[in-house]
Design a protein around this nucleic acid. Structure first.
Length: 837
DNA sequence: GGGGAAC
DNA sequence: GTTCCCCAACGCCCG
DNA sequence: CGGGCG
């Protein structure tokens, strides 16, 4: 099997698990049983064989009682180093949770034949799925059988104790203490210089100590002896508790950084002292200046080096030291750090006195500023003290370069103004004069820019930086009179806009307005719509007031179809779609930025942020073990409200909330693989023929994507399980009648290029685009009800769109009326199926 | 799309 | 002030 | 059994 699967599942930058390099050829074969408190507590049995650890997940753990059978699911091979692994696999990783070594030792083959290499023998047994071995561990001793369940294609094995004298009458694995509990290894060093209060446990003070002391912003530097000066790091403030070699690193607001800064946490876990430290996590550039932007982007994957500068110590081995003067804490911190050789964890350098000089030097180097601290001050957690002062560096500049970069996926903001300084022939990013930027404010922004550059006084720059979307700098010679370069609306990452330097015309004259998007009023206007072309619009339906927003936003950028047009479509066809939505909990699939933008699903509505006239129903969710407030759309304003939220497609339940376990219809989803749509049509016709034979009405619509949907009315008489079972019967008959092009195989790889007759959609809470629903697909396709005589080779899956469907519906009327009206009796149909055979 | 947390 | 995050939940499959 | 995945 090798270790490739093992490696592919893990991110070794995040997980402390071994990456697997060495192989071991010891005399005796080793085993380990780890107790793994992952999403569910279970045990992992690993046997050394052939240079790797053969591994099984044993949900209930082994038993020493003869004949007890324990399910053991074979999992991927693990590296030999895993024999000694214990510790915490951080959240978000494969197998996250605490892992202890429950037991370990050696094992050998049970009654191995003579003259055969033991490993060879074991390997052949393993291949046969019948392994007989003898453990020599602390808890687990004697002969066991590990046999593969034959009838089962899965990797299910059973671990069974054989009678051999080592067996026990009773065995409760839960009551046994792991041989090596995670974090059990700890040493204690004693520190001499603590003169503080009586012994306390770190956990007891952690609550109060984890809120860092803050500095007060001041202008100008206090230059006096008795004060300590250090850098104002542009990073994340982080206070860390280390206890039992388990670091807990938290942000200013008490959020854990453990996940984010795993390299640091890993390094800190070498600390055997019990300690609380205060510092700042940064990423530095070559000049040693913090790069906040890099830090914000930090994923652990890049080559940026994360550093943790420690500047204070709050607790050490039984003593809170916050009441010691800063001077002493600094010494204690240094003394503490002497005991370790860290790579990325450093004491923050500081000077005593000469603050002014220190400040000016640091400012010149490009640092954000300086913190001045009274060396006699105590540490006051959570307090913004006057004994700590921060002074930000301000610059005087020769020239300002102004660029414009746009953060990816930004919705509320289109970007920020970036400022840089051109100094000594070098361009340096200073920061953003940041502002929200949208169509309305471009002019203001430009004015602001002008004010900025005509202002002769030095100004304080903001320090916020981009998280995404890199600033692009202009060369100085390009700067003058560059007004506008490019601007696109259809890409998430827009091209940078540049505003030139020393433009002295008023904003109105530089033609900014015409650079903004194509106005929406160019679009063809619809006859029967009350939705206009304004950016925002407030609609009133009696007492119901509805605000529609961003009507000009292009939801289909290639086709230039706007959100307003989408709303207008739904407004016009509301009488067609609403019957299919009535009282059905909605699963919202929201595309707030159009079909090319990010999307998300939403079931649970925040009732407090809904207009009070919008109806919701509470439905119990098993997986969440709580009620979910589902949206109910029974009228036009509710429909438009939902669409305004970015719900391009509409996904109602198959059942109504009044009868939630009984769907009103059965549906088959004909979903083509890489196969012509004609075959989908042929398949639909086969289904239709079958339904005719069964005297069962059925209705067809385009899915709006690539396939067809067929619904059969059932009138909420049967529950989801019954309907699903029946759907499976229909799907399988269909498949058997046209086997060359259809499949009911659930696994994609086994489907081949066939039409998947999906009957599994008949589940509670399952969502399928409703009839008349638009789809978030190219051309703004619509799921369109069809006459059966239209289900022929002139049909194409994308022929009905937002542009042409309204007319069709008005001409054809609602072709699907019967879906909610003519339920069949399943018992009768089932009898007809029997006759079919 | 919109609120809240975080910085 | 600006950015990021969150916003589902079925049943498979397979380790 | 349970997490990943679709």
């Amino acid at each position: 099997m090798g270790l490739s699967q093992y490696k592919s599942k893990r991110d070794f930058k995040q997980s402390p698990e071994p990456s697997g390099k060495k192989s071991r050829r010891g005399k005796k074969l080793k085993f380990v049983i780890q107790r793994h408190d992952a999403s569910r507590l279970h045990y992992d049995l690993r046997l050394e064989l052939d240079g790797v650890l053969k591994s099984w997940a044993v949900p209930k753990g082994p038993s020493m009682v003869v004949g007890d059978k324990r399910l053991a699911v074979m999992v991927e091979d693990h590296p030999i180093e895993y024999l000694n692994f214990y510790g915490e696999i951080p959240e978000g990783n494969y197998g996250a949770g605490v892992m202890d070594i429950f037991d370990s030792g050696t094992y050998k083959a049970y009654k191995a034949p003579p003259n055969v290499d033991e490993q060879t023998h074991l390997k052949s047994q393993l291949e046969k799925g019948d392994l007989k071995i003898v453990f020599d561990g602390t808890y687990i001793k004697g002969a066991f059988a590990l046999v593969k369940i034959k009838s089962d294609e899965a990797n299910n094995w059973l671990l069974i104790k054989k009678g051999d004298g080592f067996e026990l009458k009773e065995f409760d694995i839960g009551s046994l203490k792991p041989k090596v509990p995670s974090g059990a290894v700890k040493k204690h060093k004693s520190k001499s210089s603590i003169s503080s209060s009586k012994t306390k446990r770190a956990e007891d003070v952690w609550e109060t100590h984890q809120k860092p002391m803050l500095a007060t912003l001041t202008k100008g530097i206090v230059d006096q002896s008795g004060w300590i000066y250090e850098l104002k790091y542009d990073g994340y403030r982080a206070v860390t508790l280390i206890s039992n070699q388990k670091p807990e690193m938290v942000s200013r607001n008490g959020n854990s950084f453990n996940n984010q800064f795993q390299t640091l946490v890993k390094e800190l876990s070498a600390v055997e002292d019990e300690v609380i430290l205060d510092g700042e996590v940064v990423i530095e550039n070559k000049a040693g200046v913090s790069e906040f932007q890099l830090l914000q982007n930090y994923s652990g994957k890049g080559k940026e080096k994360l550093l943790y500068y420690l500047f204070d110590i709050l607790y050490l081995n039984g003593h809170s030291v916050i009441n010691l003067p800063l001077r002493d804490r600094k010494d204690l911190l240094a003394e503490f750090l002497e005991g370790y050789s860290f790579k990325n964890i450093k004491p923050a350098p500081y000077v005593e006195g000469n603050g002014k000089e220190y400040y000016e030097q640091r400012a010149k180097e490009g640092h954000e500023g300086v913190i001045a601290k009274d060396s006699t001050s105590t540490y006051q957690p959570g307090k913004r003290s006057r004994q700590w002062l921060k002074v930000k560096a301000t610059m005087s500049q020769e020239a300002i370069i102004c660029g414009y970069a746009l953060p990816q996926n930004s919705r509320k903001y289109f970007g920020s103004l970036i400022l840089g300084v051109y100094e000594d022939g070098k361009l340096r990013h200073i920061g953003n004069a940041g502002t929200g930027f949208n169509d309305d404010s471009l002019k203001n922004l430009y004015k602001r820019f002008q004010d900025l550059i005509t202002d002769t006084k030095p100004f304080t720059l903001k320090t916020t930086r981009y998280t995404r979307g890199k600033p692009v700098w202009l060369k100085p010679e390009m700067v003058c009179n560059v007004k506008f370069l490019s601007w696109t609306h259809d890409k998430v990452m827009r091209n940078p806009v540049f505003l030139g330097l020393r433009v002295d015309k008023p904003a109105d004259e530089i033609g900014i307005e015409q650079t903004i998007e194509t106005p929406a009023n160019e679009k063809s206007s619809k006859a029967n719509t009350m939705i206009g072309q304004e950016k925002d619009q407030i609609l009133k339906f009696g007492s119901k007031e509805l605000k529609l927003t961003n009507l000009h936003k292009e939801f289909w950028p290639e086709e230039h179809i706007t959100k307003g047009e989408l709303l207008s479509y739904y407004e016009q066809i509301s009488s067609f779609i609403l019957p299919y939505l009535k009282n059905r909990p909605q699963s919202l699939n929201r595309f707030p930025n159009g079909i090319k933008g990010p999307s998300f699903y939403q079931k649970d509505m925040e009732v407090s942020q809904l207009p009070k006239w919008v109806k919701t129903v509470k439905m119990y969710s098993k997986s969440n073990n709580r009620d979910i407030d589902y949206l109910i759309v029974n009228d036009l304003p509710s429909l438009l409200f939902m669409v305004n939220l970015g719900s391009i497609e509409i996904n109602p339940w198959h059942s109504r909330y009044t009868n939630p376990d009984h769907p009103d219809y059965l549906m088959l989803d004909l979903d083509p693989g890489d196969i012509s749509f004609k075959e989908v049509v042929n398949t639909a016709v086969v289904v239709k023929e079958l339904c005719d034979e069964l005297k069962m009405p059925c209705y067809c619509k385009t899915s709006g994507a690539t396939g067809l949907h067929i619904y059969m009315p059932l009138g909420a008489r049967y529950d989801y399980d019954q309907v699903k079972t029946f759907a499976e019967v229909l799907a399988k008959i269909t498949q058997s009648r046209i086997p060359e092009v259809t499949t009911v195989e659930r696994t994609v790889s086994k489907r081949g290029n066939k039409i998947y007759v999906d009957f599994l959609q008949n589940r509670k809470g399952q969502t399928i685009a409703a009839p008349y629903s638009v789809r978030p697909r190219p051309k703004a396709t619509v799921s369109t009800p069809l006459d059966w005589d239209e289900v022929n080779h002139n049909l194409s899956p994308d022929m009905f769109t937002i542009k042409n469907a309204v007319k069709r519906f008005e001409e054809k009327g609602d072709l699907w009326q019967g879906v909610l009206k003519n339920p069949v009796n399943l018992a009768v149909v089932l009898k007809r199926i029997d006759k079919l055979k």
